[in-house]
Design a protein around this nucleic acid. Structure first.
Lengths: 151, 151
DNA sequence: TTTTCTGCAAACGATTTGCATACAC
DNA sequence: GTGTATGCAAATCGTTTGCAGAAAA
């Protein structure tokens, strides 16, 4: 079970909401399937598709990515570089979760396996009544390479 | 010791960087001192000051908040509502740290005491060589009030 | 006095929207 | 066929910037 998101998942989830399975939506999802571990902005995706002679409007890229996020297929996030970025999720919410390590020197974004946050989530709900459904953890600091350069 | 940020802290930190202590910078800091626990955007601060007949330009609000963040007096953050928000910090980096609980229903942002993340930071550095200097944790979910309304 | 800062308005970049056409169902 | 989705261009929104005048040091 679980596993990666496929085009079939897109079909199912769109159908469940009476949304249409269009060429553009498939094309956008394909970019994310082909770029595992990337954090792509709308411009990124638009550029990748234009480079492949795929005809799509920038507004459609924005609309598609927003819809895919609404379907739970993509996750939207901000790394402070002025634009929203998305990454593809997995079928199981518990699988392949990770924190982001953002280098304040070079801007690179690394990933780190996410564990031991369940406990904290439970604690939050018990103490505040806030029902947690998702979380995002960002660490700011200096990546190995920048540390080496900085001495 | 440690304690809250005061106008004197601003004076000291600006002086340490050869920046000038201006009326506008003091005014902006005062808004944050007067609004503990708030996450204010540039427009928010601008609106508050105009409501008090304080004469200041929006661009100056942006520049001041960015500078205060550079001085470590404010912390910049994004909650996905399309603008950057800032909150005032405390003198000690270890004090009064908290996570943010963002209600996906009403948009409210709550706070939760931050502990037990030091361990995770150490783990990150040991395993990746990434030197962590700061972190931000966001939990998405449903606040107590919205849960009650939704049944 | 000298340099930095402010205010204004224009510039900017990311994102959204209106509307006529094209496409999925 | 019917209604939704797309593409384009214009509009919008938050934020940044250039520059002349104002204010710290």
């Amino acid at each position: 079970m679980a596993g990666q998101i496929t085009m079939d998942v897109l079909r199912q989830r769109l159908a469940a909401h009476q949304y249409k399975l269009t060429t553009q939506r498939k094309t956008v999802l394909q970019v994310f399937i082909d770029s595992p571990g990337e954090h792509l902005s709308a411009e990124d995706v638009y550029g990748i598709l234009r480079g492949k002679d795929k005809d799509i409007g920038l507004a459609t890229v924005y609309r598609s990515m927003e819809l895919l996020a609404e379907m739970g297929i993509l996750h939207k996030m901000e790394f402070g570089d002025g634009c929203s970025r998305y990454e593809i999720g997995s079928m199981s919410p518990d699988e392949h979760q990770h924190h982001h390590l953002i280098c304040v020197q070079c801007g690179k974004v690394l990933e780190f396996p996410d564990d031991m946050l369940d406990e904290l989530e439970k604690d939050v709900t018990e103490k505040t009544g806030f029902k947690v459904v998702d979380h995002q953890v960002k660490f700011f600091g200096y990546c190995k390479e920048c540390r080496a350069k900085l001495g």
